[in-house]
Simulated scan of single mutants.
Amino acid sequence: MAEQDSTVETEFDVVVVGSGVAALFGAAVAASRGMATCLVEKTDRFGGTSAYSGGAVWLPGNRVLARDGVEDSVEAGRTYFRAVVGDRTAPDLQDAYLNTGPMVVDHLLDSLEIPMRFQAFPDYFDAPGRQQMGRSIYPKPIPVDELGGRAGDIRVSVPSDQFGIPEHPTRVEGGRAWVARLVLALDDMEAAELRLSTAAEHLLRDDEGRVVGVEVRDGSGSRSIGARRGVLVAAGGFERSTELR
């Protein structure tokens, strides 16, 4: 995404680019804390590749695991993580992920009221700290009826998208359930605004080089959205670009 200077037309505290689970959760945290938040998604449906996923979330030592009878801890997860990943990423970045994982789950449960469950999914590698039954948590399926008018706004799964296999008629599961539940949570927040078919084209900077918003394009043309507190770029596709990575 390019960067340029521009005059801001609309302003929020936070602008989020993308609508996968990371983007939706980031928007939900900001909006739940009273920050005016705008999420923009370039396609006509929410979810990105998160909607294609099985929905497993690997966050060691969280409350859902303890509630469902899984003995685990952040330190056990750290042992496994270090053994598998090593120094391919910065240790402080690894620690930030591991140490805040339980807090993420607490926020999902307590502030966003998203029901979750443990489901056996073994850790892939035979390494110190491995959980034979895994330590993955999933959102509970959501009845289609609860989605109301949002049912058509959630991206379909891979079998449906690629092979035309119909979705389950009465419930939404896996990664799609994360997306659906987070979208509904955001819809209930006065501080949140969600925009589909709105593509982010440029980051906006002030005279000191600070990112202060995003230029977007929708069906009406280009417009600038300001961000007083920051821009969260959580769109997919970066792995395809060596330069962006």
Score class of each variant (00 low, 15 high):
28 A>Y: 04
69 G>V: 00
33 R>N: 15
192 A>C: 04
26 G>A: 06
168 H>A: 13
55 G>I: 00
158 V>P: 09
77 G>T: 06
19 S>C: 11
142 I>F: 08
44 D>G: 11
219 G>S: 14
167 E>C: 10
71 E>D: 13
56 A>F: 03
225 I>G: 13
35 M>T: 05
192 A>F: 03
116 M>P: 02
82 R>H: 00
167 E>S: 13
134 G>H: 09
222 S>M: 11
42 K>N: 09
114 I>G: 07
18 G>I: 09
77 G>I: 02
23 A>K: 04
134 G>W: 05
19 S>R: 12
207 D>E: 14
69 G>R: 05
14 V>G: 07
241 S>W: 09
66 A>C: 03
3 E>R: 02
135 R>L: 08
134 G>A: 02
22 A>L: 14
230 G>S: 02
241 S>M: 11
197 S>K: 08
40 V>A: 07
19 S>K: 13
21 V>A: 13
134 G>K: 02
114 I>M: 14
202 H>Q: 08
25 F>P: 10
181 R>C: 05
216 V>M: 08
137 I>V: 10
208 E>D: 11
67 R>H: 10
62 N>A: 09
52 Y>T: 00
203 L>A: 13
231 V>L: 07
8 V>W: 01
169 P>N: 09
121 F>G: 01
70 V>L: 09
74 V>L: 03
230 G>E: 01
31 A>C: 13
100 T>R: 06
34 G>E: 06
100 T>I: 08
210 R>C: 05
55 G>T: 03
117 R>S: 14
185 A>P: 09
34 G>A: 10
209 G>I: 01
10 T>Q: 09
9 E>T: 11
40 V>Q: 13
146 E>C: 10
244 L>H: 12
187 D>M: 07
186 L>G: 12
67 R>F: 01
188 D>T: 14
90 A>G: 00
130 R>H: 04
221 G>R: 02
64 V>M: 05
212 V>H: 00
23 A>S: 13
67 R>T: 00
39 L>H: 12
26 G>C: 13
139 P>C: 14
117 R>L: 09
87 D>A: 02
148 G>D: 14
165 I>S: 05
94 Q>I: 12
131 Q>H: 14
139 P>V: 07
242 T>A: 14
191 A>C: 02
186 L>R: 10
132 Q>D: 15
48 G>Y: 00
70 V>H: 03
87 D>W: 02
231 V>M: 04
52 Y>E: 08
138 Y>E: 00
3 E>V: 11
76 A>Q: 15
139 P>Y: 01
18 G>E: 08
74 V>D: 04
188 D>V: 00
185 A>G: 11
238 F>W: 14
158 V>Y: 04
11 E>D: 07
118 F>E: 05
217 R>I: 12
